[in-house]
Amino acid sequence: MNVHAFLHNFWENTISGLAQGAIYALFALGYTLVYGVLRLINFAHSEVFMLGTFGAIITWQALGLDQDSPTPSFGPVVLYLIVGLAGAMVFSAVTATIVERVAYRPLRKRNAPVLAFLISAIGASVVLSELVGVLSRRKPRGVPRLVQPEAVFTIGGAEVTNLTIGILVVAFGLMFALDRFINRSRLGRGVRAVAQDPNTAALMGVNKDRVIMLIFILGGLMAGAAALLYDLKIGGTDFFAGFDLGIKAFAAAVLGGIGNLRGALVGGLILGILEPYTSSLFGTQWTAVTAFVVLIIILLFRPNGILGESLGRARA
């Protein structure tokens, strides 16, 4: 155990962990939204994210940018980022919609048992991942260098770069907007109603199918944003990118309290900073082991997650 490295790198690890955690949190929202309303885990959500990472790259490529393009100046960069974000969000939201229509709705119409949903979601995940794998020849794709990270200020000797700030601002902004939407808007009220009691909500005139479609799209949009931030931070993607990250985002959702929007944020950030801490303490190969041991311990004491379950009950 290397306590010296942990203390020495504390701030640098905290900052990079927060940025990674913000990506987990955005990603985790998709799990939490679907669970909150349907009480089901959407295992195909990892592929919704993965297609988003390709969506941004494909959009940029259509605009003539590849991994060798020089970094454009500030004005065009902002434009490229917005277009890339839109591309990623569209790819992810469309994928989420297709998953709902193909893997969920037909089963729902037949009152299938929960296990059937689980398996059809895993099936959809494998199909999407392998499909992209075959189409991309399982090769990784590089991301254009749109943002060259530069230090804006330092905390405790650690540099906070423009990219980190951007990731945090976009992630928190979107999460705040989503929170407002679910808790304040008319459509959001429908979502909360279905989450609380689907049958009564239907009697009150809420269209359940539309609400379910809506949460898949919302989850997809958030995953698309996470995908863009991931592209910028990591610099490349491949057909397998959703798998590992999906498990971690799902864990983050459970850790914070699945079905609870703010729980996804808390869970994501905690998992995000745990990883670099354990990397410094025990070595990068121990990251997954220690992070998940901590997760198990937290769940022993808070089985419903840190902030507790349920979209409806939390703030009805």
Partner: peptide, 16 residues
């Protein structure tokens, strides 16, 4: 140590 086919984020190693 990182992991073939799994590690995408090298921040931890880069800090070290």
């Amino acid at each position: 140590k990182v992991q073939k086919d799994v590690t995408k984020d090298f921040s931890g190693s880069i800090t070290k």
